[in-house]
């Protein structure tokens, strides 16, 4: 039983950053801006906030520090996403090119700055954020073992972000406008919605969630940051597509991808999986193969926002 609880906890650890970043991507794409810069945004968010932790950890620790770091990661993500927003919205540049530039830029900045400040590119931090046992809730059998033991507040934050995102997207005026700009910006414009502003908001949300996602990917899985988030940004892009740009489906997609990651990472220590004789590689590949299959069967009548990737220009009809 303990193995299963461990696996489920591990799955959550891998899933939550995917969930958060994919939700970020959802806001950007549903506003009409393709964002393949998620990887780069994650790197920048993680880099900035972990550098912050590294600097202040002698005077501060625990949950307060983590919350501050999350705030900084979000702000850093917004900052870097503005580059993408400016290029894609104001300059009407090719959004894939702008995204690629950011993906190239941020790891280089992370290594460069780290090496200029402390000579090595790895930034170390003390993990003082793990909660061994949440009082009361940790005693619930089953659920308590999975959700409230060896936990991080980032797990609860991720679930909160999911709920808020679903409400914002479907139940608020802003969400309706956002979706309209991604489907038919001219129609949105004709009823007085400022398409540029809404798209800026969409991209900045993806920046904020991408930045936070970078931090909460690194915190539970490592004690240093080495200028990479190991392809998680691209994996989140796959989650977004697998989840067909819808919050709840994105949640389940991230759980599925997280489970595959977990199996790939831990399978050598679990006799049951080892005995199956399936190579590790298969589990690592599965999320990407599954996404390809979903794409193959859904793209003819794609759920993707119709205007996603198309710069909006008022003067062209």
């Amino acid at each position: 039983m303990n193995t299963i609880f461990f696996l489920l906890r591990q799955t959550l650890t891998f899933s939550i950053p995917l969930l958060v970043v994919a939700l970020g991507g959802m806001f950007s794409e549903r506003s009409g801006v393709v964002n393949i810069a998620l990887e780069g945004i994650m790197v920048f968010g993680a880099f900035t906030s972990i550098l912050f932790i590294n600097i202040v950890q002698d005077t501060m620790s625990g949950q307060l520090l983590l919350l501050l770091a999350i705030l900084i990661a979000g702000l850093a993500g917004i900052l870097i996403s503005l580059l993408h927003a400016y290029a894609s919205i104001n300059m009407k540049a090719n959004q894939v090119i702008s995204g690629t530039a950011i993906n190239l830029l941020t790891p280089a900045v992370a290594v460069y700055v780290a090496r200029m400040i402390q000579n090595v590119q790895q930034i170390n931090f003390n993990n003082t954020f793990r909660i061994p046992h949440v009082p009361v809730l940790g005693k619930i059998p089953g659920l308590g073992d999975v959700l409230f033991k060896d936990a991080y507040i980032t797990t609860y934050l991720g679930i909160a972000i999911l709920i808020v995102s679903a409400i914002v997207l479907y139940k608020t005026k802003f969400g309706l406008r956002l979706r309209a700009c991604g489907e038919h910006p001219h129609a949105a414009d004709s009823v007085g919605i400022n398409v540029y502003k809404i798209r800026y908001a969409g991209v900045m949300l993806s920046g904020m969630l991408g930045g936070i996602g970078g931090l909460i990917f690194v915190i539970p899985t490592s004690t240093n940051f080495n200028a990479t988030v190991a392809g998680y940004g691209f994996l989140a892009l796959a989650v977004l597509i697998f989840g067909q740009w819808k919050p709840m489906r994105i949640f389940f997609a991230s759980l599925f991808f997280g489970l595959m990651k977990t199996i790939a990472a831990t399978y050598s220590s679990i006799p049951f999986l080892l005995n199956l004789g399936v190579p590790n590689t298969i589990f690592k590949m599965t999320p990407f193969v599954a996404t390809l299959i979903v794409l193959a069967f859904t793209s003819k009548k794609s759920q993707a926002p119709k205007a996603s990737g198309v710069p909006y220009d008022k003067s062209i009809h």
């Binding site: 580059l83 290029a87 300059m91 540049a93 090719n94 090119i97 702008s98 690629t100 530039a101 950011i102 190239l104 830029l105 790891p107 280089a108 900045v109 290594v111 460069y112 090496r115 200029m116 590119q121």
Partner: peptide, 17 residues
Amino acid sequence: APEIIDIIVASIIYFSA
């Protein structure tokens, strides 16, 4: 750090867009 080159190349790409 030689990564300054990667920064320069990335910004060239950004501006070329």
